[in-house]
Design a binder for these strands. Structure first.
Length: 283
DNA sequence: CACCATGTTCCTTG
DNA sequence: CCAAGGAACATGGT
């Protein structure tokens, strides 16, 4: 799925587009993505409400809407799962394949489309309350981070995916972050030296910031049916030759040379997911 | 056909 | 009770 940087760029894109738009109707094709909210509950909460803003928490999108005669805002929570997309589009038929929910805003729809339906569009915010600190905010402090690592024997790569430790890191950026920090994905969390925990803390922020900045400079197609994908993990040329440069340092580069030392990048499996690293630069 | 894929939750095991 | 591991979810690409 889109990880923190991709969700951040998406939210920045959507925010001005939906502000002050009022929900006219809600169409649901996959009730599963609403759970535990029901279709009726979603409709009752949203129809007539007006979008006031959108923000991000970890990999979640948080939409705020206001209702007339009510002070408390409605919170709509979105999550992209592995393959989800949120985009604003002029109403048309047929709707894109795998459209799960369409929030009708007059002539346009806010569409949530998801090939695998692992994502969410729900009123239930309980998952957000379980998240750890935002890595790019001042809530993410070195000391508590280092102490939390001391309490786990899990390999550091697996630990970075724990959303209660720090919110928003996924499988791709976990490998990228460890490469920048020069730490092997296999090291048990508790075995990291203080200097390594500190370096890791810095690498988390550096890599995520860099990815957000990158996403802010690239022309993106958020609907995903144009030539350029709105999810921008892969910095390699998508179509005809252009100025894209390789952006990911190790992810999905098994056998290719390390950008620092030239040794072949290794792929290993941890917690049933791929990790990529340089055995020389990440001892 | 086999295996792989950006994530989270639930169940089992120790 | 807790941590850790694995399956399940659903579809598509190679």
């Amino acid at each position: 799925m889109p990880e923190l940087p991709e969700v951040e760029v998406l939210v920045r894109h959507l925010r001005p587009l939906i502000r002050n738009r009022t929900v006219r109707a809600v169409d649901v094709w996959r009730k599963k993505v609403l759970a535990p909210t029901t279709e009726d509950e979603l409709r009752a909460a949203l129809v007539g409400a007006t979008f006031a803003g959108a923000s991000r928490r970890g990999k979640y999108i948080v939409f705020q809407l206001n209702r007339k005669r009510t002070t408390r805002p409605v919170i709509l929570v979105g999550h992209l799962g592995m393959t989800g997309r949120f985009f604003l589009a002029r109403r048309r038929t047929p709707l894109p394949k795998h459209t799960a929910v369409a929030i009708r805003l007059g002539s346009e729809d806010l569409i949530y489309q998801d090939t695998r339906y692992f994502g969410r569009m729900t009123l239930d915010a309980s998952a957000i309350r379980r998240l750890g600190p935002e890595p790019l905010s001042s809530d993410f402090k070195q000391q508590p981070f280092a102490e939390a690592l001391k309490r786990s024997v899990q390999p550091i790569k697996v630990k970075l995916l724990d959303q209660a430790l720090v919110a928003g890191i996924g499988n791709i950026y976990a490998s990228e972050i460890l490469f920048v920090a020069g730490i092997s994905p296999r090291v048990p969390s508790r075995r990291l030296k203080p200097a390594q925990s500190e370096g890791l803390w810095c690498a988390i922020r550096q890599v995520l910031r860099e990815a957000i900045d990158y996403g802010g400079t690239v022309p993106l197609d958020f609907s995903g049916d144009g030539e350029r994908d709105g999810l921008f993990y892969y910095g390699r040329t998508a179509g005809s030759g252009d100025s894209y440069e390789e952006r990911l340092r190790v992810y999905d580069r098994a056998g290719e040379p390390c950008l620092k030392c030239g040794a072949p990048i290794q792929r290993i499996v941890q917690a049933a997911r791929s990790s990529y690293y340089c055995v020389v630069c990440q001892p």
